[in-house]
Design a binder for these strands. Structure first.
Lengths: 348, 348
DNA sequence: CCGTGAATTGTTAGCGCTCACAATGACGTC
DNA sequence: GACGTCATTGTGAGCGCTAACAATTCACGG
């Protein structure tokens, strides 16, 4: 009543209305114990009446804390990053932090650096970088920033605190499963080699074969998209009958493309060729046939990342090379039904 | 050199180092034209040397602008919301704004209200609510907030500025396509009735049938998930041979489940039953068979939403009921190949 | 009835920046 | 050669809040 509604009310306005000092208002809002109930009630009533809201910037300036975290990500429409992002925000919110996101189309030193600058100007107290591309790892290590940064999906190699799903283990799980099902060799359709996760999955696949004394067959590359999987699948179809009975595909979307290509070529899954994927996207269970795949716990990734970042911010953890690893899990479905070598199936 | 690195350098520190006043530093940073080149260089050098960065909170306090927008969304791992979110952030960044996101598991009056409060405390200048649930519309209308809010996906009914894809049109496109392909009736598997988009799609479907003098068949309901599509598909399979030749499914994920159920029941797509979906997720092209669907331009939704919100913030547009509608597009693929009524195919 | 300490409230300085205005100096004009 | 003009730089006052400290009040025992 005392003031026009042009400018939102300040703490001083509330204090005047309630007949106390602004500091008492601050105490009520800050839930300081030493405020008389009667006084608190007066203040709360005034706040309610005037529709007062604490000014974020003034508060942040005085406390030197914004309680805001930044996230840099690329390709946030993919299932993995999107799930991670969701979990990240949820975990941050539980700790009283807000999350500002910058989504990049491509992750290069320049775009990453620009994103970090932007978040820095936005006052974030720390940043999570969902940066599975290898280039990002070095960029992250060399870039100067005035706040802690936690990397996700970069692998544990770099000198940066990071949280990772054990991709190598996931690949071993999938490849081992196919081997155990009776396949003599397992082919692999990999992701782009500038993705750390793709590299780790190739390593896990190769290691499993070598441990079983199997010569790894030709490696195929895709770009994670169903289309690239489709193209690779057409190539794979040409190897059926010449020793190809099982394929481990580096993600579910490409696996979908492979399945379609095989189907179109008259190759049956899993009878002729078994296919396993990686990610366990919600659709995988309903592919034709339902896809055996490796599930990653993105919720855990999000929680652990936030926990690590907050430790770094609060100085609870030395900024050294903290590494968190999360174990993936094999999900077996119809696309890899136990293989029974059929007489005459392998003329090669 | 002059100061310890305990506290980050302030503008005054830079000014001292460069031998100018803090205001000159501010001018250089603000790209004010009236600064001598020589002076500018001195200041920039000092900034570089000291690793100075402007303090976000102080700046925001003085200018009364945070240049931060908020986004409230639910279910951000779905393709549609994830794509919208991505486009939103990109468009906001182009305008020099940062985006803070709050992702909810469920959208109710309480959660929405809490999210808006949170963003408000975070100092956002405006909010985009990706709120396709009908309950959210009312909540948005009745909730008090000190900043403009733009709704996305709520339909244009509510008294809130909003941006929407014309769901009704999309449904008419899909249903009309099936009718034109020779099908006498088109069934519909709808989304949850508390989603506005689901309701609009049902309306469009029904209107198209009625305009063609066709009695709408029984309506089926799912929850957008492939699993619910699978269950509905099993039910639909029972109607094959009794007049069911075409189904319009309210989203691609459910369509995937329908395809699988039909396949398992020995029903061929599209020869026995044609299936159309909605969304055009990246996987749709590789389903078995590739799915006819309705594509929504999420990038446009993002851009238009940001443009509208900024108009509101800058006061360029009256806060009345501004509505933006975006047209979807039919994508025809193999799942609805032209239907040729087969003699003896319909014993009923 | 006053001293004592705890509970409660008020006062004063900033936090680091931008804005409005003042001051300075260089330049050209009549 | 005094004066107005423009470009350039400096000064002072907040923006709205919290933190530290000061002041006041109150209950209670001696």
């Amino acid at each position: 009543m005392t003031h026009s509604q042009l400018r939102p009310p300040t703490m001083a306005d509330v204090a005047r209305q309630a007949g106390v000092s602004h500091q008492t208002v601050s105490r009520v809002l800050g839930e300081h114990p030493n405020v008389r109930d009667e006084t608190r009630a007066k203040v709360l009533r005034a706040i309610e009446e005037m529709g007062y809201r604490r000014n974020f910037s003034a508060r942040a300036l005085a406390t030197r804390r914004t309680r805001t975290l930044g996230v840099v990500a690329s390709n946030t429409t993919l299932y993995g990053p999107a799930s991670t992002l969701f979990a990240l925000e949820e975990a941050a919110r539980a700790e009283g932090y807000l999350v500002s996101t910058v989504s990049l189309r491509r992750l290069t030193v320049e775009t990453l650096s620009e994103a970090l600058d932007r978040l820095s100007e936005g006052g974030v107290e720390g940043v999570i970088a969902i940066a599975p591309q290898r280039s990002a790892v070095e960029a992250l290590a060399e870039l100067r920033h005035p706040f802690p940064v936690v990397a996700v999906g970069t692998g544990s190699g770099a000198g940066v605190p990071s949280v990772n799903v054990d991709q190598n283990l996931g690949a071993r799980l999938a490849t081992g499963h196919l081997l155990a099902a009776g396949h003599r060799r397992v082919w692999h359709l990999a992701g782009p080699e500038y993705w750390q996760e793709a590299v780790d999955r190739v390593d896990g696949w190769r290691a499993t074969l070598e441990a079983a004394d199997v010569e790894p067959p030709m490696l195929l590359r895709g770009d994670w998209s169903p289309l690239s999987g489709y193209r690779a699948g057409q190539e794979l179809a040409g190897w059926v009958g010449r020793g190809l009975t099982a394929v481990f595909v580096a993600n579910d979307q490409m696996a979908l493309g492979v399945l379609r290509a095989l189907r179109e070529a008259g190759v049956r899954t899993p009878q002729d060729v078994a296919v396993a994927g990686f990610d366990d996207i919600p659709e995988s269970e309903f592919f034709a046939p339902p896809l055996t795949t490796v599930r990653q716990d993105f919720a855990a990734v999000g929680k652990r990342s936030i926990a690590l970042l907050l430790d770094l911010i609060e100085g609870r953890t030395p900024s050294g090379t903290s590494q968190v690893t999360i174990e993936p899990q094999l999900v077996v479905r119809a696309s890899t039904f136990p293989y029974v070598p059929q007489s005459g199936a392998a003329p090669g």
